[in-house]
Design a protein around this nucleic acid. Structure first.
Length: 195
DNA sequence: ACCGGGATGTTCT
DNA sequence: GAACATCCCGGTG
């Protein structure tokens, strides 16, 4: 079983979509990994979201229709990737934070020379973009159409009945750092930190 | 194991 | 000029 997720899957609010994205499979050309850690960003009302300060050239994809990939550049050397959710204009999105490597591990390793352990090939939002080759060119890609080779599929593994829920990583105090909007698969291989 | 700091450049004030 | 949804390395315990 290997079914591409339909547009309707992404149509809900990021907070609803985030937990059901767990255990789905992110595919980028010849490489793929199972999504085991995500964070919800709740649009214009969320001080932790890029959308909080309105639509700009950088975050325009977030304000577009659901089911597209929002990729942004940060810290001078890393990319992070999000799945756009909700109705057009709501700018809610789910940050992909970690994958369990599934396919094309040799390609991933070649892109991530500094990764010593297989479990660390995709164990962070910047790392997974590097391993999957996601960058500027992938911003706006339509996941439903596998645009630019990027899509998300359901291979039959269901989301966890009880995902672990924590606060989000890397936000400054007062910027929504207290909201419990990070979801992960307990005990999964490749999480961004020890559980 | 934990912690501190440097890398590096785009975006927004 | 500061902040940045990060990562990696080298210190210490």
């Amino acid at each position: 079983m290997r079914k591409r997720l339909p547009r309707a899957f992404y149509g809900g609010d990021a907070l609803d979509v985030a937990p059901v994205l767990l255990n789905k499979v992110l595919v980028a050309g010849p490489v793929a990994g199972r999504i085991v850690e995500v964070e919800a960003y709740e649009g214009a009302l969320d001080p932790g979201s890029h959308a909080f300060r309105g639509c700009t050239a950088r975050n325009a994809t977030m304000f577009g229709p659901p089911g597209h990939l929002y990729v942004y550049f940060t810290y001078g050397m890393h990319f992070c990737s999000n799945v756009v959710c909700g109705d057009e204009g709501t700018a809610t999105a789910v940050l992909l934070r970690a994958l369990t490597p599934l396919r094309g591990l040799d390609v991933m390793q070649a892109r991530r020379v500094k990764s010593r352990r297989e479990a660390d090939l995709c164990s962070g939002p910047g790392r997974l973009c590097q391993a999957l080759g996601l960058g500027r060119d992938h911003d706006g890609a339509d996941l439903v159409r596998a645009d630019r080779g990027v899509t998300i599929v359901d291979d039959g593994v269901t989301p966890p009945d009880e995902p672990r829920v924590t606060t989000r990583i890397g936000l400054r105090p007062g910027q929504g750092d207290d909201r419990p909007w990070r979801f992960l698969v307990p005990g999964a291989v490749g999480l961004s930190r020890r559980t």
